[in-house]
Design a binder for these strands. Structure first.
Lengths: 111, 111
DNA sequence: AATATATACATAAATTTCTTATGCATATAA
DNA sequence: TTATATGCATAAGAAATTTATGTATATATT
């Protein structure tokens, strides 16, 4: 089954939401979690993920903690306080957008 | 109220869906219809709309009919047969994505 | 009469976000 | 020894959008 294309803007929200539930995660873990939760429907590519994580970090929404497990590098990310607030507003923004889409695509239900 | 940003890929689907319900529409009409249906939440900019319409036309999904009303130009767009089919698959694709997002953002509900 | 707003089209430059293609390195399975 | 999985990263290109302009007519406002 072909996997869904990512819609612009949703990746950041997905990352933040996962981190709000799992305390700390590393990049590769995020790709696997998304794959599992969506039954393979959505594959986060590394080319999209890592730059996003870096941007979230430089924006002060995430903080990093480097660890070495089985002789391999891991970069654990966790939400900062600012990141937690941003998660709330990003989720609201996304839910608002989904409601707006409903109004457009299912106009009969929205009055 | 700040209006929602457009998520990548949804504009084309919105245009196609509106045209599947209204037979023929012109560009400015589409911007007003979207604004009305979403109570101002979503504003389709002309810089996004017109290039999209041109692309849909050159892809054979829309056909154009030029009219002059009140001494002003209007370009009415309507779905071709190919466009009608594409509308169906685009809507399925979007609904699939929304379901995938649900699985990610509301994991408790998806099992 | 002048000015602003609404109607109606269009395009170019810049930005954002993502895909695709690489690259490096270690561990494990075939 | 070769492929797959784990784990990071970045660069080039593509795609879709925003922002900024531009043209033109009609109507409402000052």
């Amino acid at each position: 089954m072909a996997n869904s294309k990512l819609y612009k803007g949703s990746l950041t929200t997905i990352i933040l939401k996962l981190l709000s539930e799992h305390n700390k995660m590393y990049g590769y873990e995020i790709t696997q979690k998304v794959k599992a939760l969506t039954k393979g429907e959505l594959q986060i590519t590394e080319g999209a993920l890592y730059p996003s994580l870096h941007k979230l970090e430089s924006d002060g929404l995430l903080e990093v903690e480097v660890a070495k497990v089985d002789n391999r590098l891991r970069k654990y990310y966790k939400l900062t306080e600012k990141g937690s607030k941003e998660t709330v507003s990003k989720l609201e923004e996304l839910e608002q957008y989904l409601a707006t889409l409903q109004a457009l695509l299912n106009p009969k239900l929205s009055f």
